[in-house]
C-alpha cells in the first residue's frame, strides 16, 4: 500500500509539472490582460522546437556533451515559443486582432506545426534505418532526468521530494518567482495595472504595449518549457504525434482554479496531475474511465461557480482580460 501511495504522488507530480509550466505562463500572460488561448499550441511548438534542436545535435555529433545536450533543446524550445508568442502579440497588440480568435488559431497552428515537423523527423530517422513510428531522444532525456544526489538513500522522503529531473524544480521556482514579481515589485504592480485597467496605466505613464508584449512572450516561453519537459522528462525523450493531448487546455483551466495566483497554481497543478492519473489507480471498468478523467474540468467549473457566487473582487479575472487597448483620439 505505502509504495503505491508514494508512486501515486510521484506520478502526480510528474504529470502536474507540465501543467504547472503552462499555468504559470498563462497567469503571467493573463495578468497583462491577454487571454492567450494559444497556450496549448505554444506548448506544442515549444516541445517540437526542443525535439528538433535535440535531434539535430544528436545527428551531428558522435559523442554528445552533457551540457550541450541540455542547453540546445532548451534554447531551441525557448526560441520556438518566443516566436509563437510574438505572432500572438503582433496580431493582438499591434494589429488589434480579436484575442480569442488569434489564440484559437495559434493553437490549431501550433498543433499542426508540431505534428508536421514530428512526422518529418520520424521519416528522416526511418530513412536512416529506424523502424519506429516515433522519435527517441533517450540519451538527451537521460540528462534531463538526472536525479538529485542522495535521492536513493533517503527512503520515502527522497522518493517524493528528490527523485525528479531539474525541470520539476525549475517549474516550482518559476512559479514562486512569478508570484514574488507580481506582488512585491514595481514591475509587477505596473503589469497588474495594465491587465486591470490599461487606460489608467497608460495615463500613469506605464507603457502598456511594451508590458503586454513582454508578459506574453515571457509567459509563452515558460509555457513552452512545459512542452519540452513533457518530451524530455515525462515521456523519456520520445515524440509521437498528438502525444501531448489536452494538457494545454488543462493548464488554462488551472489558471481559473488558481484564481490567477502562481502559488496556488503549484498546488493546483499537482492536484490536477493526481486527478489526471486517478483512473489508473481506482478500479473501474474501461468504459467508465473517462468519467474520472473529467474530474479536473469538473473541479474547475466548481471553482468558477464558487468564485462567481462569492464575487470577491480579488478572485475575479483581471478586469481588462481579453480586451485590446488603444488610446482613443478625439
Amino acid at each position: 500500500m505505502f509504495p503505491t501511495i508514494i508512486q501515486f504522488i510521484q506520478r502526480a507530480i510528474l504529470q502536474g509539472t507540465t501543467l504547472l509550466y503552462g499555468s504559470t505562463g498563462e497567469i503571467i500572460t493573463e495578468k497583462s490582460g491577454h487571454l492567450n488561448l494559444g497556450i496549448p499550441g505554444i506548448m506544442y511548438i515549444g516541445a517540437i522546437s526542443g525535439v528538433i534542436g535535440g535531434f539535430m545535435y544528436k545527428q551531428s555529433v558522435a559523442q554528445m556533451n552533457t551540457v550541450l545536450a541540455l542547453l540546445i533543446p532548451l534554447f531551441s524550445c525557448l526560441l520556438g515559443s518566443l516566436l509563437a508568442s510574438l505572432i500572438y502579440c503582433f496580431l493582438t497588440v499591434t494589429l488589434h486582432a480579436n484575442q480569442n480568435v488569434t489564440g484559437l488559431a495559434l493553437t490549431t497552428f501550433g498543433v499542426g506545426l508540431g505534428n508536421f515537423f514530428g512526422g518529418s523527423l520520424i521519416k528522416l530517422s526511418q530513412n536512416m534505418g529506424s523502424t519506429a513510428t516515433s522519435i527517441a531522444l533517450t540519451p538527451i532525456a537521460k540528462v534531463y532526468k538526472t536525479k538529485l544526489p542522495f535521492a536513493d538513500k533517503l527512503g520515502w522522503f527522497g522518493d517524493i521530494f528528490l527523485s525528479y529531473g531539474f525541470m520539476v524544480y525549475l517549474a516550482v521556482i518559476l512559479a514562486v518567482v512569478a508570484a514574488l514579481v507580481l506582488n512585491k515589485t514595481r514591475v509587477g504592480l505596473h503589469l497588474r495595472a495594465v491587465g486591470e485597467n490599461p487606460a489608467t496605466a497608460d495615463a500613469a505613464g506605464v507603457p502598456v504595449a511594451r508590458y503586454r508584449y513582454l508578459a506574453t512572450c515571457i509567459g509563452g516561453m515558460v509555457a513552452g518549457m512545459g512542452g519540452l519537459y513533457y518530451i524530455m522528462d515525462y515521456t523519456n525523450g520520445i515524440w509521437s504525434n498528438n502525444g501531448f493531448g489536452d494538457r494545454g487546455w488543462l493548464a488554462i483551466a488551472l489558471v481559473i482554479f488558481a484564481i490567477w495566483r502562481p502559488l496556488r497554481g503549484i498546488l493546483g497543478s499537482y492536484l490536477f496531475g493526481a486527478l489526471y492519473i486517478l483512473f489508473l489507480y481506482v478500479p473501474v471498468s474501461m468504459d467508465k474511465q473517462p468519467l474520472l478523467q473529467m474530474l479536473p474540468y469538473v473541479v474547475t467549473i466548481v471553482v468558477l461557480i464558487f468564485t462567481s457566487i462569492r464575487s470577491k473582487k480579488e478572485s475575479q479575472p483581471p478586469a481588462g482580460l481579453g480586451l485590446n487597448y488603444y488610446r482613443e483620439e478625439r
Binding site: L189, N197, A201
Partner: peptide, 12 residues
C-alpha cells in the same frame, strides 16, 4: 485601478 489599494494607485 479598482482592485488596488489607494497607495498602490498613487505610486503607479
Amino acid at each position: 485601478v479598482d482592485v488596488f489599494t489607494s497607495t498602490e494607485n498613487i505610486v503607479l
